[in-house]
Simulated assay, not measured.
Amino acid sequence: MDSISKKSFHTRSNSLPLRPHPVVDDVDEHLCRLKASAATSSSSSLSQKLGKVQDLHDSIDNLLLLPLTHQALVDNDSVDDLLEGSLELVDLCSMAKDVLSQMKECTHELQFVLRRRRGDDITNDVQKYLNSRKIMKKTIHKALKGMEKSSSKTSDESSDIVTLLKQAEAITYSTIESLLSFMAGPKSASKASRWSMVSKLMQPKRVACKEEGSNTNL
């Protein structure tokens, strides 16, 4: 009798829904946070979203170490799609990093010129900066056009793990796209707006000149 009751209890316990692994919950929580902030696109919000993407992928690293993840990937036909998507993300991140580094270098060079050549004609230097930025914008827009890809479809038979990984891929693509769009700015900026941007770079110089002038008067 005891053996029968134990067997029936064991059968009932197996029928209960399994509780998700804490790492799975962690990944899902990071995804929810990113989805909630998807509509914002200011520089500060983008910085926050990039931090959240980093946290998401840190959690995914932990998720990929779990045996249940290995089993889910083995039993699913979407592994090749996930790998291809990951490689594309690596290429995009590398390109975004290179462009951002070039933009930073060009900006620093122009600021250096603005500080050193007080009163001199800096038109050629400014034009050089604008031309460099124009080339980088073309590179970004070309990359954005290449990102117009259909998101990976998740079939009803996909496991929860695979679904999470595909959602993470999609939200990462979206965040990088927002970053590149912000870096590129409007696709067809007027000449006045381009010089307005240069004028903003000159603000620190003007403040410094005013401070020097006031110190001289003292």
Rank of each mutant, 00 (worst) to 15 (best):
S13P: 01
L50Y: 00
S159I: 02
S174Y: 13
L18T: 14
E88K: 10
D28A: 05
R115D: 03
Q203V: 14
L83E: 06
S94F: 12
N131P: 02
E88T: 10
T40W: 04
L87C: 09
T154P: 00
R117K: 13
F112R: 12
D156R: 14
K137P: 02
M147T: 01
H57C: 07
V113W: 08
D80K: 15
R19L: 15
L180A: 04
L73A: 04
N76R: 11
S5N: 05
P20W: 02
S190Y: 07
V53Q: 03
V207Y: 06
P67A: 09
I140H: 01
G146S: 00
M1Y: 13
M95R: 09
E84V: 07
A168S: 11
A208R: 10
A72I: 11
T69M: 08
K142Y: 02
A189D: 01
N217M: 12
V99K: 00
W195H: 15
D28N: 04
Q167W: 11
L63T: 00
C93L: 10
L18G: 10
R118E: 03
T139I: 07
K7E: 08
S181V: 07
E169I: 15
S13L: 13
E157P: 00
V90D: 05
S78I: 07
S3Q: 15
L16A: 08
V113Q: 10
S181E: 08
S94C: 13
H108W: 12
Y173S: 13
P20N: 03
S13E: 08
M202S: 11
T69Q: 08
S190C: 12
L180S: 01
D125K: 09
N215L: 15
E177N: 09
V53G: 01
G213Y: 13
R118Y: 06
A168Y: 02
L179M: 14
M103N: 05
R117Y: 14
K200Y: 10
E169C: 14
K52Q: 08
H21V: 03
A184Q: 03
Q127H: 04
S155F: 10
L164D: 00
V126F: 08
L34I: 05
R206N: 10
L66V: 06
A184I: 04
I176F: 15
G146W: 01
P186L: 07
L46W: 04
T172Q: 10
P20C: 03
T175P: 09
V162F: 07
E211M: 12
A38V: 13
D156G: 13
L218C: 06
L82V: 09
L179Q: 08
D26L: 06
K128E: 11
K187P: 00
T154M: 14
I140L: 02
G185K: 01
S178Y: 11
Y173Q: 14
S159L: 06
M95S: 14
K187E: 05
K49F: 06
H108Q: 15
